[in-house]
Design a protein around this nucleic acid. Structure first.
Lengths: 243, 243
DNA sequence: GCTAGCATTTTCGTTAGCAATACCACGGCA
DNA sequence: TGCCGTGGTATTGCTAACGAAAATGCTAGC
């Protein structure tokens, strides 16, 4: 497997799902994928299987693949795990950070500040992603890295919902600043704690969302057809605030 | 996919790898698997892909699948993550444990004690697995559960090596006792800390193993043919002491 | 007008087979 | 004698096609 063709399809479908082009529980018909990505059914199938392994799609016997719907409760669980792993990453980064890496982190965070003052959410998003990637690079913990990637992919959608609650940017930026400060100060314990506090606040936000949005039993979505395609830009801005 | 046929093959190959019937870096020829498990090549192929997703086998372009060799350094990383996740599980279990579940835990731990005094390692192994499974059941954290299963599968082999260092059973049992005590006392913080201490000692044991076993560059294994098939019993005993 | 049952159609699960590629042994040449 | 090129073999990567299951739509009966 792992033919480059398959890998390309996996990546394409992955970003499509993460960016919301495919809605949760939407069926992923193999032949559709074939014509969209110009490959054979076998490739599409393999790609879907790999995505299933990543937890992004699910199979049902004789009914094919659909985009996995991650319920809010599971998103909370995932964020709890993320809190632990990202905390570990932050601590590691604090232990190993070099001078040049520290400078890089500081540069990113000052850019974030200006982006926030100018209300440039997309720019902030990009910087945020770059910051976290930098922390992961510094930590060099491949196991956590791999797991975190999976977990992040699964929760992007809910981060989008969360971005709509007002006032979150105001709390997000100082938390990020605290994380970077601890890392560049080479204080592992403080870095871990800062990262945990950050994600703890995300968990609490998700829990409040849970309380208000699901008063009674599972309200099922239409389940087929992209019910809405939020622009990627919007999604990115959402991810910025919370990750 | 997820045809029951494929699932059976996945499970069979998984246990074969975990029990050491397939050595690390041993090639997994598709046709061999076909005749061994009496399925078609397509099924074998799908199963291998799923196992690759679980991190147990790896693919190389045009060279097929082999059992992934988890280097000791990666095993340490994995155990670090396990420490966090199992700690979370323990805390959760302490929050949610019911009377009957607590009784069950206590029963298992007393059985463990007697098994140790009688030097019944296999029995201890079985009880140990049951204990951890019980904790996971009580915690009801499906995300951590899923991740932990993957991580455990990947490290069983190294736990085998570790079981050979003398004196470990003496430290393992009291640690388990402490964990159970904290859980039944409904003290989440203590349960988490006890579990972490336990896995921290495993990490330290692994690190000492690292220091003594790899004086110079990667010493590569013969790489094909099961170079040795340790009896499953031995493996289970090893897993007992450390997990 | 509505429901139950049947036929059709879509889509998936599986098998068989072909083409491409890497590994291995052998022989020629320096 | 040692090294490089070459051919054969084994194994994978992939395509095409077939059979089976489920969803859908239609017709007939109530």
């Amino acid at each position: 497997m792992a033919g480059d063709a398959k890998l390309a399809v996996v990546e394409a479908v992955r970003t499509a799902i993460v960016h919301g082009e495919y809605a949760p529980r939407q069926r992923l018909i193999e032949t559709d994928l074939c014509e969209r990505f110009g490959t054979s059914r076998f490739i599409a199938r393999s790609a879907l299987q790999e995505l299933a392994g990543m937890g992004l799609v699910e199979f049902e016997r004789n009914k094919g693949a659909r985009v996995r719907d991650i319920p809010l409760t599971e998103a909370i669980e995932i964020t709890e795990v993320r809190m632990l792993l990202e905390g570990l990453m932050a601590a590691r980064a604090a232990e190993r950070v070099t001078r040049s890496e520290a400078a890089r982190l500081r540069g990113i965070v000052t850019d974030m500040r200006t982006a926030v003052t100018r209300s440039e959410l997309v720019r902030y998003s990009e910087l945020n992603g770059r910051l976290h990637a930098a922390v992961r690079d510094i930590a060099k913990h491949t196991t956590s890295d791999r797991l975190l990637r999976q977990l992040r992919d699964q929760t992007v959608r809910h981060q989008f919902s969360l971005a709509l609650v007002p006032g979150r940017p105001a709390v997000s930026l100082p938390q990020h600043e605290a994380i970077v400060a601890a890392v560049v100060a080479r204080d592992p314990a403080a870095a871990e704690q800062a990262m945990r506090r950050h994600l703890q606040s995300v968990i609490e936000a998700l829990q409040s969302l849970l309380g208000q949005s699901a008063p009674r039993g599972q309200r099922r979505q239409p389940a087929q057809g992209a019910r809405r395609t939020p622009p990627a830009e919007e999604i990115l801005a959402a991810a910025a605030i919370l990750s």
